[in-house]
Design a protein around this nucleic acid. Structure first.
Length: 201
DNA sequence: GAGTAGATCCTCT
DNA sequence: GAGGATCTACTCA
């Protein structure tokens, strides 16, 4: 019986953001809000490498009230409202003052599926429940009030449940929805588990 | 099945 | 005042 290991903040303070984005595939993201526990296996991520990355909010060291959490030490949540509708959940990584983050794009639901369906106002469970970053945050009950929370304990944490995704089953490619970033949009900073139905097309 | 438009509100200029 | 790290539904074939 494998022991579930909660990833500590120091894990997220490594310098290899892209490597961590890949490593997070197969880990389990857990939230506990209003006494309701929801969790899912991370099956798709994107790395945002901060000041060098035109697609990141923190490009060129831009520092605003919104991006301030990205400058914190790794292991902090960054939740951002996009298009007035969707919340996107990120994990801040690297050391203090280095604004890098990993966007969680898709999960495979494990626990609390009825709660997720309720939050997403769905009557039947299908693959769209946690496919896409806006859906993930919605299903887990995250909103921008949860930005800046420390990961590693309730209500938000990431567990290693011993789920091994072989490197060969992880694909990488260009990111989605960041075409405005020019050539930076083509960087292979997106990772996903091959063949998983929850991964967006 | 593929392509396109609309929703909707916070944030920065 | 404009635009965004998106999703869904609807149209057309």
């Amino acid at each position: 019986m494998k022991k579930n290991k909660v990833l500590s903040a120091t894990y997220f303070q490594q310098e290899d953001v892209v490597g961590m984005a890949k490593d997070l595939i197969g880990k389990v993201l857990v939230t506990e809000f209003e006494g309701k526990k929801t969790s899912g296996i991370i099956v798709e991520t994107e790395a945002y490498t901060g000041i060098n990355d035109k697609a990141a909010h923190s490009y060129d060291g831009k520092r605003t009230a919104r991006t301030e959490v990205m400058y914190q030490p790794g292991g902090v949540s960054y939740v951002y409202l996009c298009y007035g509708i969707h919340h996107l959940f990120n994990i801040v990584t690297n050391k203090k003052d280095i604004p890098q983050a990993i966007l969680i794009r898709a999960l495979e639901p494990l626990e609390g599926i009825p709660v997720m369906m309720q939050r997403r106002k769905k009557v039947k469970a299908d693959y769209s429940l946690t496919r896409g970053p806006g859906s993930v945050a919605g299903a887990l009950g995250l909103n921008r009030n949860h930005s800046g929370l420390i990961l590693g304990k309730a209500p938000i944490y990431v567990e290693d449940r011993g789920i091994i995704i072989p490197s060969a089953a992880i694909c990488s490619g260009a990111r989605i929805g960041v075409a405005y970033a020019g050539k930076d949009a083509l960087l292979p900073y997106r990772f996903w588990a091959i063949g998983n139905p929850y991964v967006s097309k």
